[in-house]
């Protein structure tokens, strides 16, 4: 497909998630036959992970008053400047959100990613890519420190699912992945510039953690598995019905794909029973889905959503 030899630059771009999919495949094929290069890639990714381990804690520190004040002013100035046509309105909000969180840093390092406007035609694809990027950053952020990994534990899954469904405004649940060795730890809600999202976190016996990010970006999107790699974090994302899903983990693409298939079949099957009609009706599903190999067993343990329980405050 691509005869150009893999270069030094390609290896870096592969690690940094800056290759297009064609080139990425070429590099992956190359790495399969070159253990030295594969070891370098692994080491570079480990370096990236260490950098985040070292410095992501800064994002949790409250900014000084001066910095906070300046951030607010900058946000105001940028918002005031923009008087573009209507389709710019959303990107504008995104800019504002990004400035606030990028600068204030209070719990949101992933927001500043990919802040750029696109043509209306490209917007839907961009929306989903942005969603995936936020999921990736949220994964990185909340797996960085085990003390802050979830807001609400999975001891009571009804409570967890009910609470997150309210936050997202749609019926969401964390699928049971026990059959593939992952246990649900809990979840948190995240305000993203595409609306509220829910992050479920799982762990396996080897202490590998994966996160499933669920949200409802306002657009119809192609319902295929897409893949993105940012540093050492791999992410698969797709759309099912009115919701978008992004599964992120520090795993190989192949390992993660197997998990994504399991998640996909579970969310497609949905929770066993629907709650009473107090949720907004789901938007029509335009497209039907991809992976034909996905197992179709429905989750056994996820219970219907309860609306009445109040989670502990975060």
């Amino acid at each position: 497909m691509n005869a150009r030899a893999v270069t030094e630059d390609d290896l870096h771009a592969y690690v940094d998630g800056q290759l297009d999919s064609t080139r990425r495949l070429a590099v992956e094929r190359w790495l399969a036959d070159d253990p030295d290069a594969a070891a370098r890639v692994e080491d570079y990714r480990a370096q990236t992970a260490l950098l985040h381990d070292l410095f992501d804690g800064v994002l949790r520190e409250p900014p000084s008053d001066a910095v906070q004040d300046l951030s607010d002013r900058l946000k105001g100035r940028l918002a005031f400047n923009d008087n573009r046509p209507p389709w710019h309105a959303r990107p504008l909000l995104r800019v504002a959100a990004a400035v606030l969180l990028l600068l204030a840093g209070a719990g949101g390092g992933w927001f500043g990613r990919g802040v750029q406007t696109v043509s209306p035609a490209g917007q839907q694809r961009q929306t989903l890519a942005t969603f995936a990027e936020e999921a990736t950053q949220a994964h990185r952020f909340y797996t960085a420190d085990e003390r802050f990994q979830v807001e609400l534990g999975a001891d009571n899954q009804d409570e967890l699912n009910g609470w997150l469904s309210k936050r997202v405004g749609r019926d969401v649940f964390g699928p049971d992945l026990a059959r593939i060795g992952f246990r649900l730890i809990g979840g948190r809600s995240l305000p993203t510039d595409l609306g509220a999202g829910a992050q479920y976190m799982y762990v396996n016996d080897a202490n590998k953690r994966i996160t499933l990010f669920v949200g409802a970006p306002q657009s119809g999107n192609p319902s295929t598995f897409s893949f993105t790699q940012n540093g050492d974090v791999a992410t698969f994302y797709w759309v099912e019905g009115a919701l978008s899903y992004a599964l992120a983990g520090r795993l190989s693409k192949e390992e993660l794909l197997e998990i994504a298939k399991a998640v996909y079949s579970d969310v497609k099957a949905g929770p066993p029973r629907r709650p009473p009609a107090n949720e907004p009706p789901p938007r029509p599903v335009e497209v039907a889905p991809p992976p034909s190999t996905a197992p179709q067993d429905a989750p056994a343990t996820v219970q219907p959503i309860s609306d009445t329980q109040k989670p502990k405050d975060s």
């Binding site: 400047n81 800019v95 990004a98 802040v115 406007t117």
Partner: peptide
């Protein structure tokens, strides 16, 4: 702030 153009990368 005036010199920032919407549509370019804020970061």
């Amino acid at each position: 702030a005036d010199s920032f153009q919407a549509g370019t990368n804020l970061r």
